[in-house]
Nucleic acid binder design. Structure first.
Length: 403
DNA sequence: TCTGGGGTCCTTAATCTA
DNA sequence: TCTGTAGATTAAGGACCC
């Protein structure tokens, strides 16, 4: 029997686990004086910055993630404001990962506080999806002293929306047969990927709930929102989404940025900051064995006016000096060198492994010889993906012959 | 309200190239 | 060889996520 989610296989059981107020909960766990108190992790009041995580006590005051810290302080002046302790959170996240790997080998940490687990194969061994969810929650509670909310559904979309239904310490299971009914009455903004702008655009068309979205034709959605977004909306409104878990993603870019305490025009300071950001990027790149050929300068002026300038070179780099020299070149030829700067940032992209030569050095396929080179390159692309680098030795002969 | 830092992906337009 | 075009690539900006 065909069903709407997979034509060629039995439905899976996908679990999404979301740690509750993760950063704040860790701080409360490790400092009993914070228990039961409104704890706000992020920038400190008085500075420029936003809330990263608010404890549930702080949420009662209307404090939310991504809220400017000044606003959070206005709403909750007696809150306890703390800077994040990243290392501690990474460690806790890894511990969560270890617990999940005992349940199923198919675990994907989607962020520091979220994971997808394919539990389809674990049911025979461990019991029903509900039993497995309780097992996970209990282990996290007893060994880490933290709570998590869990959603289970036939694919990633349903699992993710479900985990958000009953926070904190929640558990929501959506059977395949219940998917459409489950989605119908939810606001369109519950679909991950629909933010403020997309929600406004849909509301303008009289679409507020996922059920109303489903009532629109694919043709209409594509004509209004374009091929990509239209197809996305059409599928998600029907609960259609991937059920693959565990695809490790390769990083596509490295970036570092700094917001100044107050806007600055001090070119020495900008120079120093770019130098520091460049060497941070170089360090990260070398640590991960990556180098990049595209450099991006990001600049935010007074009034949040944001610009980027980028340039792609034909050689990739992971070296502090080269990154700096390239980004300085972009900065000094940019038109905003005189204006007060709020933020400055550096990015490295079009990444490849190691410091080797790039695919972009290809010679034109005009001769038989270069066709051979192309065939070799295609084989490498097939095997390693189109971003694969060509070992230096493999490039050089073609290069020499060309000259 | 006054907006961090680290990412990913999408769109659009111009240009290059197979 | 000429011409036309589909498809990459580059650059800039923005939406979105945690």
């Amino acid at each position: 029997v065909k069903h709407p989610f997979r034509q060629d296989a039995m439905p899976k059981f996908i679990m999404h686990l979301d740690m509750d107020a993760f950063f704040a909960a860790i701080e409360q766990r490790d400092n009993p004086a914070l228990k039961g108190k409104p704890v706000i992790i992020g920038a400190l009041p008085g500075g420029r910055g936003v809330v990263s995580t608010a404890s549930y006590e702080a949420r009662k005051f209307g404090v939310r993630s991504a809220m400017p810290i000044s606003e959070a302080y206005r709403r909750c002046p007696d809150g306890i404001f703390l800077r994040p302790n990243g290392r501690k959170y990474v460690q806790a996240s890894e511990q969560v990962g270890e617990i999940l790997k005992c349940i199923s080998p198919q675990v994907e940490m989607a962020s520091i506080d979220e994971a997808y687990i394919d539990i389809t194969g674990s049911i025979k061994l461990l019991g029903s999806p509900g039993t497995i969810a309780m097992l996970v929650k209990d282990r996290i509670k007893s060994s880490l002293l933290l709570t998590a909310s869990v959603g289970i559904g036939p694919n990633r979309l349903i699992a993710k929306i479900a985990s958000d239904m009953n926070k904190p310490d929640g558990l929501t299971i959506v059977k395949e047969s219940e998917v459409l009914e489950f989605l119908s009455a939810l606001p369109v903004s519950k679909i991950p990927g629909i933010g403020k702008k997309a929600e406004e655009a849909l509301n303008k068309l009289g679409i507020f709930y996922i059920g109303q979205l489903r009532a629109r034709s694919e043709r209409e959605l594509i004509s209004r929102f374009g091929e990509s977004m239209g197809g996305f909306l059409f599928n998600k409104s029907r609960g259609i989404s991937s059920d693959e878990v565990g695809r490790e993603d390769i990083r596509k870019s490295i970036s570092k940025e700094r917001t100044f305490g107050e806007d600055t025009q001090d070119s020495d300071r900008l120079h120093r900051t770019l130098l520091n950001l460049s060497s941070d990027i170089g360090r990260t790149a070398r640590k991960e064995g990556l180098s990049g050929r595209t450099i991006t300068l990001k600049i935010r002026l007074e009034g949040f006016e944001t610009h980027t300038r980028s340039h792609s070179y034909d050689t990739a780099t992971d070296t502090d000096d080269v990154i700096f020299q390239r980004v300085w070149d972009l900065f000094s030829t940019s038109p905003w060198t005189e204006k007060p700067v709020r933020l400055i940032g550096v990015g490295l992209s079009d990444l490849s492994n190691g410091t080797g030569a790039q695919l972009s050095l290809f010679t034109p396929a005009k001769t038989l010889r270069s066709k051979k080179v192309h065939a070799a390159i295609d084989r490498i692309k097939d095997r390693f993906g189109k971003k694969a680098i060509l070992p230096a030795q493999a490039v050089e002969p073609a290069d020499k012959e060309k000259k």
